[in-house]
Design a protein around this nucleic acid. Structure first.
Length: 955
RNA sequence: GCGGGGGUGGCCGAGCGGUCAAAGGCGUCGGACUUAAGAUCCGAUGGGCGUAGGCCCUGCGCGGGUUCAACUCCCGCCCCCCGCACCA
C-alpha cells in the first residue's frame, strides 16, 4: 500500500469521525468523565515533533479512556499573549529580511507576507495551521471549544479580567516596583525580542554603591558586587581619561559617570547634572571610607569602565585580583606616578587582609593572580577567572577576620544581606540596578535599567498562598513521580513575587482591569484557562446563544464558576436565557477539575507551579489532578534545531509519514520521564510500510483455523491476556514506549511464534478474538489503520474509537502453561546447540531422553533448598535416595556454585512427556530431523538427564 | 553558582542490591525463500575456549568505599540536558 493510500485512509476516518461528531463531548452526569488538556501553544509558527510528543500523551490518554467507557473532553486553544508576535509583525512592517524569509519558507506569497504586519494575521494563520496539523494527525479534539487568547478575543478577555479581579480581591495581586531593561530614547522596556541577538537573556543585576566622601562632602560613589570588602579598601580607582559629571543627587553633590547618573534618574533618584569633570582632576585627592572612616586616595586605572555602574570603583587589593594587579601596575608606572605626583601615596599603600580562606595566604588576590599568570590589568580573561575563583571561595568558605567586629567569624554568605542593610541604614551606601554589560536594542540605542513603578505582582511569596498550593499537591499526581513533584515542590518554596504585567506598547494580551496601561503577562494569563474550555463553545459562539459579549461581567462568571447570584437576572443582563446560563454552569461543574494535563519539563518550574497557585486561589478543591512532564524530543539522537535543519514540523511529518506512522514513532520515542526522548525517523519510515502489512496479515488470518483447542492455544491465550493486562497498566501510566513495545512488538512475537508452533493452523476462535483485541489495543496509538481494519477486515459497523478496550481475562493467564512452553523452546535450543557442537548438520535422528522417575521429586527438593539459600552439599544430598547419591554427586556439587544448573521442576514426568509429545512435530520441523521422545535409553549420556532438562542424543 | 534530570553494547533504550553479557527495537552478519533484488521468516551479534546443551575473561562516565554480592547504595570528580523570572 502506498503512502498516498495510507494518507487517504487517514483522511477518510478523520472525516467520518468529524461527521459523526464522536469527539464532541457534552456534560452527561450519567457517565464518568475525563477531562484532558495540553497547554495551548503560542501561535507564532508551526508546531514540531517536540510539541506533538507531549500532545500525544494527552491524545493517547483521551482515546484510551474513551475506550474505557469514559465521557472524554479534549479541547485545544491557542496562545497569542506576549511580545514575539507583536515584535514579528513590527519587523514585517519594517521589512526585516530575516522575518520575511521565515514566512517565505512557510510558502506565503509576497502579497500575503505584507498582511503579517498585523499581529492578527499571525494569530489567525498559525492557529489555523496548528488546528489543521492536529486534525490531520487524527487528534480526538472537540474543536467547538477552541479559541485564542488576548483582547482580540473578547469573551476570553472577559474571563481573564474576572480572574484578576478575583485575585486582587484576595490580596494576591499587589503593586510594586521592578527593574527592567529600558530604552531611554523610545521609553519602553526592552525584552529579548527587542534586542540584538547577542544581548538576549541578559537581565538587571543589583549592585551596592558605597558612598565615599571628599572633605567638602562630595560623594564619590563606587559600585561593587562585594560590599563586604569595603573594610579593606586601600584606595579608589577612577579612569583618568573619562569625563564624569558633577550632579545633585537626592540633595547631595555627587561625582559619577554620566551613564551612572542616567541610571539613577530612572531609579527613583532625584538627579540634576550640574557640570562635567575629567577623571584625572580627581586623581590624588583623598576620600573618606563611610564604613571605616579611613581616609584613602583616588588613583588612576585604565580598567575602570564608565559604562558600568558609577564608573568609579573601590580598591581592595588583598581580595580582588583586578585591584591587586592594578596596584602592582601603578607602582611600576613611574610616568604616571610622576604625572600626578602620587608616588609617595602609592608607596605607602598596603593591602588589608579581611577574609581567611583555607589554602590561601593572607592575600588571596595575589595567590590567584600568580596562579592564573596575570601580567597586567589588561589580561582580562585571566583576571575574570581569578576573580571568579576568589569570589566563590571567599563567599562560601571564607571566615571574616576581627576587623569585621560583630560580623567576625562568620562567612560572607551568612552576613552579606545584613551588612548591606546596615550600610543602607547608616547612609553609607545605596543599591543600584545595572546590566552587567551594556545592552543595545534593535534600533541601536543603549539601554539602561529603569525601575518601573506601576508594576503589578502576583504575590507568590505570600505564605498563606504557598500553603494553599502545597495543600493541593497532596491530591495531585505527578508523572514521572517523584521527579516532577520534587521540581514543583521546590519551586513553590522558592518562588517569590512575579511581575505579572507588561507595558501595552510592546505586547499583546488582556489589560489589567484596573490599569489599562498594562497587559497581563503571558504566563500569568494562562493558569486557570482550562476552566474556560468547559464553556468556550457557548462564549465563542456568543451570537448563536444570544449572548451579548459586552455585557459579560464578573457576576456572570461568578455564577458559572461559583453558582453565585441569580441566573435569571444574569441571563437577562447578558441577553440570553436562563437555560443557557445554567447549562454553562452544568458544563463547568461536570467537567472540572482537569484529570490530566501533559506538558514539557521546562514548564514545571513556572507555568505548572503558577497554575497550581491560581487553582488553589480561584478554584479551591478543583485543582488539576494529574500532571505529566516529559523531556525534549531529540531527532535521530540530535537536538532539534531549525538552523541545523534537524527539525521536523507536525505538518511535515504528516506529509512524510502520514498520521499513524508518525504517531507510532512518537509513541516509541520514550516513556514518561524527564529525560529526553528520541524520535527515530527509521521507525517512522518502517511503520509506513508495516502498518498496511499488518492489515494484510490480519486479513489473511481472520476467521481462519481449526476448532480444536490444544495446549498451545491455551498458551497463546495466556500470552495475549498477559499483554492486554500489562498494556492496560502502561496506558494508564502513559508510558508510550512500553505501550508500543507490548502492543506491537511483543504481540507480533507471540503471534508469529504461535503460527509457527501450530504449523500455521491457529485455533479459529482464539486467534480471531486475539486479532480483534490486538487492533483495539493499538487503536489509541494508530487509530486510523485500526479503524480501517475494524471496518474493512472485521466488517464491523461501529467505530473502534468508541469500542471497549479489551479486558484481560485473569483466568486465562496461566503461568504453568507458559513455563511449559518455555521448556519446549529450551529443548529446541539445546538440540540446536548440540548439533552445532557435534558438527552434525543433518542428523538422522534426535533422541530426547527423560530423566528417571525418582529425580522429579528429589531434584524438586534440591532446587527448593537452593532457592532458600542452602549451600551445604551434605544437606542437599540428604534428599537424594541413598542408592543414587553417587551418580548425582557431581551435578549437586556444581549446583552449589551455580544453582542455575538444576532446572526448575515444572511438573511430573508425565507432564514433561506430554509437552514434548504434543510439540513433537514442531520440534522436528525446527531441528530438521525426526525426534524420538523416550523415557529410558541405554546410553551413558542418558543418566545426565534431569527433570525438565532431558538428555539429548544427536545421531 | 543554585535547583531538577541524566551518562548502559555499533545506535536507541530496559534494568535501579543477587537469577545480567544485560529485555525490546534499529543496524550488521549468516541462512531459508526468490532467476535476482526487496519484503518476509529463522539464526547470530563484547572477547576467548569447548565434538555435547558448558566454561573463562572483560564490561554499565571516571576514581574510591559499603556489602558474601553493585549497573543498582554511599563519597569525590568529569561530562550532557532543563529551569533560575518578565521569556513563551
Amino acid at each position: 500500500m502506498s503512502k498516498e493510500k495510507m494518507q487517504s485512509i487517514e483522511e477518510k476516518w478523520q472525516k467520518r469521525w468529524e461527521e459523526a461528531r464522536i469527539f464532541e463531548a457534552d456534560a452527561d452526569p450519567s457517565r464518568p468523565k475525563i477531562f484532558v488538556t495540553f497547554p495551548y501553544p503560542y501561535v507564532n509558527g508551526d508546531g514540531h515533533l517536540g510539541h506533538l510528543y507531549s500532545q500525544l500523551h494527552t491524545e493517547i490518554y483521551a482515546r484510551y479512556k474513551r475506550m474505557k467507557g469514559f465521557n472524554v473532553l479534549f479541547p485545544q486553544g491557542f496562545h497569542a499573549t506576549g511580545q514575539p508576535i507583536v515584535a514579528a509583525a513590527r519587523r514585517i512592517r519594517e521589512g526585516d529580511p530575516k522575518y520575511i524569509k521565515i514566512l517565505k519558507t512557510y510558502g506565503f506569497s509576497d502579497e500575503e507576507i505584507k498582511e503579517f504586519g498585523d499581529p492578527r494575521k499571525w494569530i489567525k494563520t498559525f492557529s489555523e495551521r496548528w488546528k489543521n496539523a492536529l486534525h490531520r494527525m487524527g487528534f480526538s479534539i472537540d474543536w467547538r471549544r477552541s479559541f485564542h487568547t488576548t483582547e482580540l478575543n473578547p469573551p476570553y478577555d472577559k474571563f481573564v479580567r474576572w480572574q484578576y479581579n478575583k485575585l486582587r480581591e484576595k490580596g494576591f495581586v499587589v503593586k510594586g516596583t521592578h527593574p527592567v531593561v529600558w530604552c531611554p530614547i523610545e521609553k519602553i522596556p526592552i525584552g529579548d525580542h527587542d534586542r540584538k541577538d547577542e544581548y538576549a537573556g541578559i537581565g538587571p543585576e543589583e549592585i551596592v554603591v558605597i558612598k565615599f566622601k571628599m572633605a567638602d562632602g562630595t560623594v564619590i560613589p563606587t559600585g561593587t558586587y562585594r560590599p563586604e570588602t569595603v573594610y579593606g579598601v586601600t584606595n579608589i580607582w577612577i579612569n583618568p581619561d573619562n569625563e564624569y559629571v558633577i550632579a545633585e543627587v537626592d540633595g547631595e553633590r555627587w561625582i559619577i559617570s554620566e551613564w551612572g547618573a542616567e541610571h539613577l534618574k530612572e531609579q527613583q533618584h532625584d538627579v540634576k547634572i550640574v557640570s562635567k569633570i575629567k577623571g584625572e582632576e580627581l586623581v590624588g585627592k583623598g576620600v573618606k571610607n563611610p564604613v571605616t572612616g579611613k581616609e584613602v586616595p583616588i588613583l588612576p586605572a585604565s580598567f575602570v569602565d564608565p559604562d558600568v555602574a558609577t564608573g568609579i570603583v573601590m580598591s581592595v587589593p588583598a581580595h580582588a585580583p583586578y585591584d591587586w594587579i592594578a596596584l602592582e601596575d601603578i607602582k611600576k608606572d613611574k610616568e604616571t606616578l610622576e604625572k600626578y605626583g602620587i608616588a609617595e601615596i602609592v608607596e605607602k599603600i598596603e593591602p588589608i587582609s579581611l577574609i581567611e580562606v583555607e589554602g590561601y595566604s593572607e592575600f588571596p588576590a595575589r595567590d590567584a593572580v600568580e596562579k592564573y599568570g596575570v601580567k597586567s590589568q589588561k589580561d582580562v580573561d585571566a583576571l575574570e577567572k581569578a576573580t571568579d575563583e576568589i569570589y566563590k571561595k571567599e563567599f562560601y568558605t571564607g571566615k571574616l577576620k576581627e576587623i569585621y567586629g560583630e560580623f567576625a567569624g562568620r562567612t560572607v554568605q551568612e552576613v552579606k544581606e545584613d551588612m548591606i542593610k546596615r550600610f543602607k541604614e547608616t547612609g553609607a551606601a545605596i543599591t543600584m540596578w545595572i546590566t552587567p554589560v551594556p545592552i543595545i536594542d534593535r534600533a541601536g540605542h543603549k539601554c539602561l535599567v529603569k525601575i518601573v513603578e506601576n508594576q503589578w505582582f502576583l504575590k507568590y511569596s505570600d505564605e498563606k498562598w504557598k500553603e494553599m498550593a502545597r495543600e493541593t499537591l497532596k491530591t495531585t499526581k505527578f508523572d514521572p513521580e517523584p521527579d516532577a513533584r520534587k521540581a514543583v515542590e521546590h519551586t513553590i518554596e522558592w518562588l517569590h513575587d512575579w511581575a505579572c504585567t507588561r507595558d501595552v506598547r510592546s505586547s499583546l494580551g488582556t489589560k489589567l482591569p484596573w490599569d489599562d496601561s498594562q497587559y497581563i503577562e503571558s504566563l500569568s494569563d494562562s493558569t486557570i484557562y482550562m476552566a474556560y474550555y468547559t464553556i468556550a463553545h457557548y462564549l465563542q459562539n456568543a451570537e448563536k446563544c444570544g449572548i451579548n459579549v459586552d455585557a459579560l461581567d464578573d457576576a456572570f462568571f461568578d455564577y458559572v464558576f461559583y453558582g453565585k447570584g441569580d441566573p435569571e437576572e444574569i441571563a437577562k443582563r447578558v441577553g440570553t436565557t436562563r437555560d443557557v446560563i445554567e447549562s454553562m454552569r452544568r458544563e463547568f461543574e461536570y467537567w472540572y477539575p482537569v484529570d490530566l494535563r501533559s506538558t514539557g519539563k521546562d514548564l514545571l518550574q513556572n507555568h505548572v507551579t503558577f497554575s497550581i497557585f491560581h487553582h488553589a486561589a480561584i478554584f479551591p478543591g478543583k485543582h488539576i489532578r494529574r500532571w505529566t512532564a516529559n523531556g525534549w524530543v531529540l531527532l535521530n539522537g540530535q537536538k532539534m534545531s531549525k538552523s541545523s535543519g534537524n527539525f521536523i514540523t507536525i505538518i511535515q511529518a504528516q506529509e512524510r509519514w502520514g498520521a499513524d506512522a508518525t504517531r507510532f514513532a512518537e509513541a516509541y520515542s520514550g516513556n514518561v520521564t524527564l529525560e529526553d526522548a528520541n524520535f527515530d525517523t527509521t521507525i517512522a519510515d518502517a511503520m509506513l510500510e508495516e502498518l498496511p502489512r499488518w492489515m494484510e496479515f490480519v486479513r489473511k488470518w481472520y476467521n481462519v483455523g481449526t476448532s480444536e483447542y490444544r495446549d498451545i492455544d491455551r498458551w497463546f491465550e495466556s500470552k495475549v491476556n498477559r499483554i492486554i493486562k500489562e498494556v492496560d497498566r502502561e496506558y494508564e501510566a502513559l508510558n508510550t514506549r512500553n505501550i508500543v513495545n507490548l502492543a506491537w512488538f511483543e504481540f507480533w512475537r507471540v503471534v508469529k511464534y504461535y503460527l509457527r508452533r501450530t504449523m500455521n493452523v491457529p485455533n479459529k476462535r482464539v486467534f480471531s478474538k486475539a486479532l480483534e483485541d490486538w487492533v483495539k489495543i493499538m487503536a489509541p496509538v494508530t487509530p486510523h489503520i485500526a479503524e480501517e481494519i475494524w471496518h474493512e477486515v472485521f466488517g464491523k459497523e461501529s467505530f473502534i474509537s468508541l469500542e471497549r478496550f479489551p479486558e484481560a481475562d485473569e483466568e486465562k493467564i496461566d503461568e504453568r502453561t507458559e513455563k511449559t512452553e518455555e521448556y519446549v523452546q529450551r529443548v529446541v535450543e539445546d538440540i540446536r546447540e548440540i548439533m552445532k557442537l557435534a558438527r552434525v548438520e543433518k542428523p538422522k535422528r534426535v533422541v530426547v531422553i527423560l530423566a528417571d522417575e525418582w529425580k522429579y521429586d528429589a531434584f524438586g527438593k534440591v532446587r527448593e533448598m537452593l532457592e532458600n539459600g542452602e549451600r551445604n552439599v551434605g544437606k542437599l544430598m540428604e534428599v537424594i535416595p541413598p542408592e543414587h547419591r553417587k551418580e548425582v554427586a557431581k551435578i549437586v556439587t556444581s549446583a552449589v556454585k551455580n544453582p542455575k544448573r538444576i532446572p526448575e521442576v515444572i511438573g511430573t514426568k508425565e507432564e514433561e512427556k506430554r509437552a514434548l509429545v504434543e510439540a513433537k512435530t514442531f520440534i522436528e520441523a525446527e531441528v530438521g530431523a525426526t525426534t524420538e521422545i523416550v523415557e529410558h535409553y541405554d546410553h551413558p549420556k542418558a543418566k545426565n538427564a534431569l527433570p525438565f532438562k532431558p538428555a539429548i542424543l544427536v545421531e
